[in-house]
Design a protein around this nucleic acid. Structure first.
Lengths: 337, 337
DNA sequence: CTTAGCACTCATTACTTACGAGTGCTAATA
DNA sequence: TATTAGCACTCGTAAGTAATGAGTGCTAAG
């Protein structure tokens, strides 16, 4: 167990290290944080804390640097002290009716998070297992092309152009669409079954074409299960920790691969509220030097995650408050420009 | 005017510099390129060429490096020698009917260009002045929301969620949509005028709401005049010229700002065919160290540009052939996965 | 339990030196 | 007149050396 003073030492080291980026020595602590105690005393504490795994020395006779465990205790303490109002709950409901739809809102939010935090904002929506259609439509574009349009519960819209053999009249497709729309609100898996039967029964003659349309629909719903937005990454250039091109690359490669990052976020879709993932706690191997501050919220079969990714040595306090702020603002700005 | 041998010296310097990345000395040229002549002779030629602005010395008594002018003559010579079949003409028509629409095709193309070239692929569509609607539709999603759907000539699809006061029935909107669709194919400016009159005339009672719908439509058409796709940027990490974080940053910042890059590409929407923009020839200040290989093609009121951006010291030969290859493939793969 | 004092460690910086690729110029050659 | 061999000179890079100083662990005294 940690004594009061040991905790104080850890917090001080983390705080100072986040500010300066340099190894923190006993003298500094004695002068700026634990003013009552001498450097020697603090040295002893630090030696103990190193043994316990909260701090480490990059090399013999350098100052101390926090380990992931050290950061963890720092962040946890901070989160505990946060007023309940700032713990990011249930913001999702504000988003759906946004002018550009859920997607537009998320795209803006991720950008805003980047701007305000000076790291990289992220936003992701993922369809939970049960997908519920709200509305579909086939729109004839010209003789050979239809546009398949899908609106899901939660406000996500997909469209896809499909090339259709001409034997299929608009009427048939309208019929199919009408049928599907009567099934709106049910879970997709059920709907699909019902449609299979309907097609091979009532629409026997057009089974092939309708089957293809159905397959397209299925592909849309299966394919983009989770959609991801990342804000501006230029900020990373100004982060001292990423001046080394190697570390930069690690983070960047992951940010660029939608699928990988989406998985990663999915994995941390924690219960509602704000959470922090630090360094090696991250599953992805390239992210040992990075941390994420995330908030997720679920509603009507979609889970939405907003967050910021940056260096392990990020200013957690600021990022958390920025995230909180953005979550609120999105509620207020509903429907506005 | 350049003598035959002078030209040969320039081409050799460029070629060697692209391969090695190091200043090219007279000895190297004498041994590997102009085998008949001694280093001293070549030294004299090089001194002349430097005066003429084709080569430069980074510092006294280093080898020579090509100037932009040097690269230019190198690239021009190469393009001239290209078989006519490889000059990238009129590929746009293959794209429209692509499975995921024009946009899907471009997104894939830019990714492919990145992969194959080892630099960064780009694709952009821009609406020329006259926009022609092909089809629009209002789709009721629930009591308060409609989805506005727009298909343009050229295969571009936009959708936007609009929140409507409930006084507007589906009927009215359907009426409006029907009216607009009868005007399909005309230029948007004219259509808008016609609609203004129609709305204030026939639909007098609903003028406000319909007016708003019209405004949304206008916003869509005005807003996304040019849409841009960039492929994977990870490749840039392996380019020796960008190991320096400063140069990397310059390029990256531009690639990340859609609007800026789109403008830049617009500017070079040259006549059909393959063209190259080298270093300072670029308007953007951050791109002195970069070159672009571009091919544009126009059809039905849209202009599409495909290309690759990379370091000035890029392997132009390979990039050009890759671009050519991708342009062909897109034609072949029409409608395929 | 705390703290002053001291010897020791080691990254960082600055400075020097040596090396060598490449040049420009001159004078000899074809 | 065009070419080339020879030579002194330049200058970026790498390697080696020394000085600096922040920080430690340990010991012994308060």
């Amino acid at each position: 167990m940690l004594t009061e003073r040991q905790l104080e030492v850890i917090l001080s080291v983390v705080h100072e290290f986040i500010e300066s980026g340099e190894e923190v020595g006993s003298r500094t602590l004695s002068k700026r944080y634990l003013k009552g105690r001498s450097a020697a005393t603090i040295r002893n504490e630090m030696a103990d804390l190193e043994e316990m795994g909260y701090l480490m020395q990059p090399y013999t006779s350098a100052g101390r640097v926090p380990t992931t465990r050290g950061y963890r205790i720092f962040v946890d303490t901070m989160l505990q002290r946060l007023p309940h109002s700032e713990r990011g709950h249930g913001w999702i409901k504000h988003l759906e009716a946004h002018r550009d739809g859920l997607r537009g809102a998320l795209s803006k939010a991720s950008e805003m998070l980047s701007q305000l935090s000076n790291y990289v904002g992220m936003a992701a929506v993922t369809q939970l297992e049960q997908i519920h259609l709200r509305k579909i439509d086939f729109i004839r574009v010209d003789s050979a092309h239809f546009l398949l349009l899908v609106v899901l519960e939660g406000g996500i819209v997909h469209h896809r152009m499909i090339t259709m053999p001409c034997d299929l009249s608009q009427d048939i497709l309208e019929d199919l669409a009408r049928k599907i729309n009567t099934l709106a609100g049910y879970e997709w898996k059920e709907v699909r079954e019902a449609l299979r039967n309907y097609i091979s029964g009532e629409l026997g003659r057009y089974a092939d074409s309708c089957g293809r349309a159905l397959a397209e629909l299925d592909a849309i719903l299966a394919g983009e299960r989770t959609k991801l937005y990342t804000g501006s990454m230029s900020n990373l250039f100004d982060v001292p920790d990423f001046q080394d091109i190697g570390k930069f690359r690690a983070l960047f490669s992951i940010l660029e691969q939608e699928s990988e990052l989406a998985n990663l976020l999915d994995q941390y879709g924690m219960k509602d509220g704000i959470g922090v993932v630090i360094g090696e706690e991250n599953a992805a191997p390239g992210l040992q030097n990075c941390s994420m501050v995330l908030s997720s919220s679920s509603d009507e079969g979609t889970r939405t995650i907003l967050g910021v990714i940056g260096p392990k040595r990020m200013n957690y306090e600021r990022v958390i408050s920025v995230l909180d702020r953005v979550l609120r603002d999105m509620g207020d700005a509903e429907g506005d420009e």
